[in-house]
């Protein structure tokens, strides 16, 4: 990678207090600006933990995470909120927010603690809802939505946050085929606007359709990383999932099949 890396994980070690075995060990990874990186790995490989570390929510026991060469820990929360957006896999929502009220929360990093969102914030939130195709439902209760629609609302909230680095945790896990396609287009458009994207997924096709770079994670370590074409191979995916996988080329798009 030629340019200055945007995000660096250096010799990371992290474990949760309850478990003896560390979730991540000797973890090293660099993300270049403007790239779309997909993280593939079996369940429990440490993918979500990695995103939470990048966010600054979890602190590593050893090693360092840098954002534009500065340690993540040296940023203020507000600055991190403007830098990084997180789309969690799913989220417990206890109250009947309207979609607009909920997406508006994405503006929080830009507002002082006691301020209220203003007209400009409403407009940004509305445009974020338009981008995920839910503008028509903006006054509906979020609890009345299906799982897939809720996932789109979480994405809209992150869009309203206007981050430079977008972290997504299995963004397509609840989406139907149509919405999956729309999301891939939306994320490509964001990349075109200069947003760097890092996402985890259990769907190799989504990684193949969207990512420029691929990280294969296994047991808290990087198994292999590089450009998509170099890493998305039958050999490497077979090693990753420990199950015979073949890669098929369909009109220039790669699909992984287990055999």
């Amino acid at each position: 990678m030629s340019a200055t890396p945007l995000l660096q994980f250096e010799q990371l070690r992290f474990g949760y207090p309850q478990t003896a075995r560390p979730v991540l060990q000797d973890f090293h990874l660099e993300i270049a600006p403007g790239t779309v990186t997909a993280i593939l790995g079996p369940n429990g490989a440490g993918k979500t933990t990695l995103l939470h570390l990048a966010l600054g929510w979890l602190q590593p026991q050893a090693g360092l995470i840098r954002l534009e060469r500065q340690p993540v820990a040296s940023y203020s929360r507000r600055a991190l909120g403007q830098w990084l957006g997180l789309v969690p896999q799913s989220e417990h929502i206890a109250f009947e927010y309207s979609l607009l009220e909920f997406v508006l929360l994405g503006r929080a990093p830009y507002l002082p603690s006691l301020a209220m969102p203003e007209k400009a914030d409403y407009e940004i939130a509305q445009s974020a809802l338009e981008q995920v195709g839910l503008a028509a439902l903006q006054h509906r209760s979020i609890l009345s939505l299906s799982g897939g629609e809720r996932q789109l609302v979480l994405i809209a909230r992150a869009l309203a946050q206007q981050p430079r680095l977008l972290l997504l945790d299995e963004p397509t896990s609840h989406l139907d085929l149509g919405n999956k396609g729309r999301l891939v287009h939306l994320l490509r458009e964001l990349q075109g606007r200069g947003v760097t994207i890092l996402f985890t997924t259990h769907e190799p096709e989504v990684a193949a359709a969207l990512a420029t770079h691929l990280v294969l994670m296994q047991k808290g370590q990087v198994l292999k990383t590089g450009l998509l074409a170099e890493v998305f191979t039958a050999h490497d995916l077979t090693r990753l999932y420990q199950l015979p996988v073949s890669v098929v080329d369909l009109d220039g798009r790669k699909v992984a099949l287990w055999t």
Binding site: L55, R77, G85, E91, I93, G106, A108, S113
Partner: peptide
């Protein structure tokens, strides 16, 4: 009362609230 909008953030999951700049 002064924190009334911010309270919304705190009704979310911890890591989400954190990612939106809250403590």
């Amino acid at each position: 009362f002064q924190m009334r909008w911010r309270i919304n953030l705190l009704s979310l999951n911890d890591e989400t609230a954190f990612s939106l700049g809250a403590a």
